[in-house]
């Protein structure tokens, strides 16, 4: 992550999807919420679960499992919504669980290997090996491309 040169570590939030751990910088995270009632929005890609009322702001919710094309499961108590704030919008991401916040040494971030599971590689900005954990760093700008014209080919 070139913009972080000059710092030794990057504080990141680690969360879980299926059996893998992912990470994203803490700077973009506005908060972590428990599941709340979601209003469906028709005619949107299936990974857009709908919108929630986040303290007066209507916030869209994306199911990361579906976004990555992973198998879906019933929501349970562990599920969390991570609210991230990008350039000009906020989106909530549904994850299986939010595990912890860690400092990732910049040196340990490596470019993604050729094959990383089933997650589409364009969503990944790098991988981190910490002790025995393997963390996948997400490229949120790619994961959350604004839906300009919602057409059928996105289903």
């Amino acid at each position: 992550m070139p913009e972080l040169v000059g710092q030794d570590t990057v504080k990141s939030i680690v969360f879980q999807l299926l059996d893998k751990e992912y990470a994203m910088e803490v700077d973009v995270v506005e908060g972590i919420e428990k599941l709340m009632s979601i209003t469906r929005v028709p005619k949107t890609p299936s990974y857009v679960k709908g919108v929630i009322n986040l303290r007066g702001v209507v916030t869209p919710i994306v199911d990361l499992r579906e976004r990555f094309g992973l198998e879906t499961k019933e929501m349970d108590d562990n599920n969390r919504i991570i609210i991230v704030s990008l350039q000009d919008f906020e989106v909530g991401l549904i994850v299986d669980a939010a595990n912890d916040v860690i400092d990732i040494p910049l040196r340990s971030i490596e470019p993604q290997p050729e094959v990383v599971g089933s997650v589409e590689s364009e969503f990944i900005s790098g991988v981190v090996k910490l002790d025995k954990r393997l963390l996948v760093m997400l490229n949120l700008d790619k994961v959350l491309q604004p839906l300009k014209r919602v057409s059928s080919d996105e289903y």
């Binding site: 005619k43 857009v48 916030t59 869209p60 906020e90 989106v91 959350l144 604004p146 300009k148 919602v150």
Partner: peptide, 11 residues
Amino acid sequence: LGNYLQSVFAI
């Protein structure tokens, strides 16, 4: 609906 969902049909 915010800038993420920029144009949803009929909403």
